[in-house]
């Protein structure tokens, strides 16, 4: 059974369930193919709905709105963002970070880059642990505080995260639009160069470190991580089946200590641990039982 499971995961060049869902999500979220050819944005009503992942609404193919961009825009208008915050909480409480692992197109890009066979780096714990807190700083400072309160000389509150950091905007919006629109190319200056540099740094890091943006910088992941412990979607580890081989921890792209804290705020619910577990001790799904509180028979690890 173990061999079958491992074969399924590794052998035959089969595309994993996670990858299929990631591709499907990327295509569905950016399904306006004509936009890429024309360099024009989709203007249908579906753009009033925020998607659960970081997907720039200035991507020519985007069919929905980016929740992080929308949150900053609402805050810039000095209004409490009921709608965007409500949707974000809804995604968070139902899925936790499942959206990061299965639905995020920028996560897919990082996953694919990490497949390229170059030496991989294991970030030392003394750097990794504090660096992971950076994403909370990004959320509080660049997404909430500055867009709400920092007004420029021209009297506007720019979306600071989108403007200075977001690599998804550069990859999905900036580059395709620059390719198709000569006027935008003329306007591009230092800021565009800066954003391309940020994108290149993140994409290059992705070759060596698994999902560096998700680990250290993504404000949406930071928001969802708050819900991971009690979201409706939970990961479960059956302690009676666990043989302590730690295959799950070695395979985890987010370096989560699966056997100690399976619903860690860092877990993106990608399911790698489940697929490599030799005894099938790990499962995930919508459940009444929550992290840290074992029920009879199966146990959710504290």
């Amino acid at each position: 059974m173990h061999r079958d499971r491992m074969k399924k995961e590794k052998g035959g060049g089969k595309i994993s369930f996670q990858r299929k869902v990631q591709f499907l999500s990327a295509v569905l979220l950016n399904g306006y193919a004509a936009g890429f050819a024309k360099g024009k944005l989709f203007t249908g009503k579906s753009k009033a709905f925020c998607v659960p992942v970081l997907n720039c609404y200035s991507c020519p193919g985007a069919l929905g709105a980016c929740p992080v961009g929308s949150l900053q825009a609402s805050l810039a208008g000095r209004r409490f963002p009921f709608y965007v915050l409500g949707l974000l909480m809804l995604f968070g409480v139902v899925l936790g970070r499942l959206a990061c692992g299965l639905l995020c197109p920028f996560g897919l890009v990082q996953d694919l880059l990490h497949k390229i066979p170059v030496p991989k780096w294991k970030v030392p714990g003394r750097i990794d642990r504090p660096a992971r807190s950076l994403k909370y700083v990004v959320l509080l400072v660049l997404v909430i505080f500055l867009p709400a309160f920092a007004v420029t000389k021209s009297g506007v509150n720019p979306p600071y995260f989108c403007k200075y950091l977001c690599p998804a905007g550069t990859l999905g919006g900036g580059i395709p639009l620059m390719i198709t629109d000569p006027v935008l190319r003329e306007l591009a200056g230092f800021l565009f160069d800066w954003k391309v540099l940020v994108l290149v740094l993140i994409l290059t890091s992705s070759l060596f470190i698994h999902r560096p943006f998700c680990r250290y910088l993504c404000p949406l992941g930071a928001f969802y991580s708050v819900f991971n412990r009690f979201s409706f979607y939970q990961m479960h580890l059956e302690r009676t089946k666990c043989v302590g081989c730690k295959a799950c921890e070695r395979s985890c792209p987010m370096a989560v200590e699966v056997t100690k804290n399976i619903n860690s705020p860092e877990c993106i619910r990608c399911g790698k641990c489940r697929s490599v577990c030799p005894t099938g001790a790990i499962s995930g799904g919508f459940s009444r039982n929550v992290s840290g509180i074992p029920s009879e028979g199966s146990e959710n690890m504290p």
Binding site: L41, F42, T43, K45, K47, A48, F49, C50, C56, Y57, S58, A62, G64, A65, C66, G69, S70, A73, S74, G77, R79, P81, F82, Y83, V84, L85, G86, L87, M89, L90, P158, P159, C162, K163, C166, G169, T170, G173, G174, L177, M178, L184, L187, A188, G189, L191, F192, D193, W194, K195, V196
Partner: peptide, 28 residues
């Protein structure tokens, strides 16, 4: 929260922002 936002027609603000090119997002 989402319901209150819909009643305040905040989804239309999101729509208005999302259908125009966000110059900050693309680096201009």
């Amino acid at each position: 929260l989402a319901g209150a936002g819909l009643m305040r027609r905040e989804h239309l603000e999101v729509l208005a922002k999302a259908v125009r090119i966000c110059l900050e997002c693309i680096g201009i």
